[in-house]
Design a protein around this nucleic acid. Structure first.
Lengths: 218, 218
DNA sequence: GTCTATATGTTGATAGAC
DNA sequence: GTCTATCAACATATAGAC
């Protein structure tokens, strides 16, 4: 690997860590180059601009996440038995495993989530490029629950992703709220909990069915 | 109302709108004062600093939201019949009604959510001040579901708040994902959907109960 | 209280030596 | 490819006239 490739990768890793921890808008070119111990001009040389660097990181990580999710979903469907719990496991597993894994992969997820929240138009455009994976999951859910209307599936998929977002980026609040009673270090336990919640929500009866069986107390 | 109070309030309203739409870190003192058509020094005079202004807005809105939620919960409990759906309605109703209400209240919610995501230590300290309201809700849920362990309740409360966060700040993604099939302009419909999902997750059986009745296919 | 003028620092990006 | 030096634009905050 050439020296250039070397510093390029090193700058990306350092920037990702800083972006993930302090937010995209709160990290300057100077902070990154100082932390990475490379020259101030390196970012502009290798990535054109600070935003170019952020986009390069986003492109790479978003692709990795999409591929990881898709691989699991394909394997599931190839094996034939894709029940809802397994499908949602393929969706939620990758980011949560990254999040509970080493420092680097945790920062990768947090970077992605930060980036998704950015108003920056270029990034928002890029996000819509990766929608197809989520549509695959929607189709997979529709196969298990053919009674659900299309828009209902999208709502429930959206809610499921919301669980993942907050869990990866705001879990500190859960620790504060629970006074330490909730631990987030046991991946299996965390994954089970969020999957329980998501399955319950996604697999609940369709509104039409529920309206047909109104409760007496209502 | 004095002239000073007048510009003070006007600056807060303008700043809240800009903060909500572009993010806390992406709005400068100059943008705010220009948009509000007040003097550049006004912010430092009335609030000490740009961060002081942000904190003043946060304090006000966080208190309003907390009071709104608490009032509903108290009324519910006073009437005796606080079922889970009603409790979660008291939790989710205020932010969603704000979000679907006028421009100003929508910006108020989005400001709060943006602020919650900030790494700024002063704001994070302030957030923990408002935890007591959430603990009230946790206690209320515990009364309906005394079989749930304490930490399980916090997990589910945390997940419920995650739904609200993404719904108020990232609902644009839902529209993109669904190709326009999901509409977010009908407050009652949105509130019903998120409440359905939340109730299903929060009211699902405790893990211990589920383990005692393992499914055959597992 | 409101304003102008300004002090002081930081930002992203680049030109040109090596 | 890497570095130093520097630019122009932006930031926050304040001192002092009115």
């Amino acid at each position: 690997m050439s020296k250039a490739q070397d510093t390029r990768a090193h700058v990306m890793a350092t920037a990702e860590r800083l972006f993930a921890r302090h937010g995209l808008s709160n990290v300057s070119v100077r902070q990154i180059t100082a932390e990475a111990r490379v020259n101030l001009a390196a970012i502009n040389y290798h990535f054109g601009s600070r935003d170019g660097l952020a986009m390069a990181i986003f492109r790479r990580r978003a692709s990795e996440l999409a591929r990881d999710r898709l691989d699991r979903l394909r394997k599931l469907e190839a094996d034939g038995g894709a029940d809802l719990r397994a499908i949602l496991g393929a969706l939620l597993g990758p980011p949560l495993e990254w999040c509970c894994g080493g420092e680097e992969s945790r920062d990768a997820v947090r970077f992605l989530i930060h980036a998704r929240g950015e108003r920056h138009p270029e990034i928002r455009r890029l996000i819509n490029t990766h929608l197809d994976v989520l549509l695959r999951f929607a189709a997979s859910i529709a196969r298990v629950r053919p009674d659900l209307p299309e828009d209902e599936i999208y709502w429930r998929l959206f809610f499921t992703l919301a669980l993942e977002h907050d869990l990866c980026s705001e879990s500190e609040r859960l620790v504060n709220l629970s006074g330490g009673a909730c631990r987030r270090d046991d991946l299996e336990a965390v994954l089970d909990r969020v999957r329980d919640f998501a399955v319950a929500g996604v697999d609940s009866p369709a509104r039409a069915q529920r309206d047909a069986q109104p409760r007496a107390a209502q």
